[in-house]
Design a protein around this nucleic acid. Structure first.
Lengths: 150, 150
DNA sequence: GAGAATTGTTTTAGGCTTCAAGTATGTTGA
DNA sequence: TCAACATACTTGAAGCCTAAAACAATTCTC
């Protein structure tokens, strides 16, 4: 098997394992899901809220997807939907007080999970991995741009 | 933000970007999906076929999920379902002749996509990344086992 | 051997995701 | 001005995915 393929499979399984564990803990400890958490996180970083389109761009998912997520989170009372007065086509999403409190708790736990999962890696290894992933990302970017230009 | 979190986010976006591109190409070039491709790949590696349970373990997804995937692929004529004569509870899945041909084509393309996407990385970088991901995986393993023992 | 536990699969209910089509609002230029 | 185009969102159909419950066949144990 080609070296590139082996690298890709290892990258994939590492990421998948971590992600599965995060999903599992979000479910068992907070009865929530990763997409819900990600949406709250996006709103947490935006004090004035975000339109659905902005959320969709930040989360790299489709508009229709965000519509459904927002509807569920709204019905749970964690986010508020409100038509933008400036542009009546746009819907602005904000964290409710409860949503902010819920996110703060979940976010703290999430941070400590990640820290725990990488605890076995020496700081130099962590840095080297971070750097190489950066290299891989930019190599990838180049490859995809070349592809697109065809 | 913590160094661990930055590392995780970079790992996640790198993987997600590659995976999204693979999904996109499978869809546009072969009108198929990654789970379908993964199931065919699992069968390709098993000359005598696999039971649904074995597929489910290899793909790290639930049994119910494989039932649905198998049903769709069966209706497309790419896999065959047949009760195992040894253990009549089990269903054995095999590639049909058409399924094998389809997979061979898709697999060749998939391999060249991966090669292309990592082309910008020097062989030493590729190796270093592979090694560090191995370290991360085993560190992770240790952390999760420690967690489980609680 | 009969009953109990285990194993392999399917079903059910619900959430996530996409694409494509539809609705409403906003912008622009002849 | 107003028709054409663009933008923001929603809806609908289909597939992917999970957990839990239901079902069926096998194995274990007494």
């Amino acid at each position: 098997m080609k070296a590139e393929l082996r690298l890709w499979l290892r990258l994939l399984t590492t990421t998948t394992t971590i992600e599965a564990e995060i999903r599992r803990r979000l479910r068992t400890q907070f009865n929530t899901t990763l997409p819900r958490f990600d949406l709250l996180a996006a709103l947490d970083r935006a004090p004035d809220g975000l339109t659905l389109g902005e959320v969709s761009a930040r989360m790299m998912v489709t508009n229709g997807n965000v519509t459904g997520l927002a509807t569920r989170l709204e019905s749970e009372g964690l986010v508020a939907r409100r038509v933008d007065p400036q542009d009546r086509r746009a819907v602005r999403l904000t964290l409710t007080t409860e949503g902010q409190a819920v996110f703060d708790t979940q976010s703290a736990a999430h941070g400590s999970w990640i820290k725990e999962m990488f605890a076995g890696l020496a700081p130099e290894e962590r840095e080297a991995l971070h750097r190489l992933l950066g290299r891989a990302k930019s190599a990838l970017q180049t490859a995809l741009e070349a592809e697109e230009a065809l």
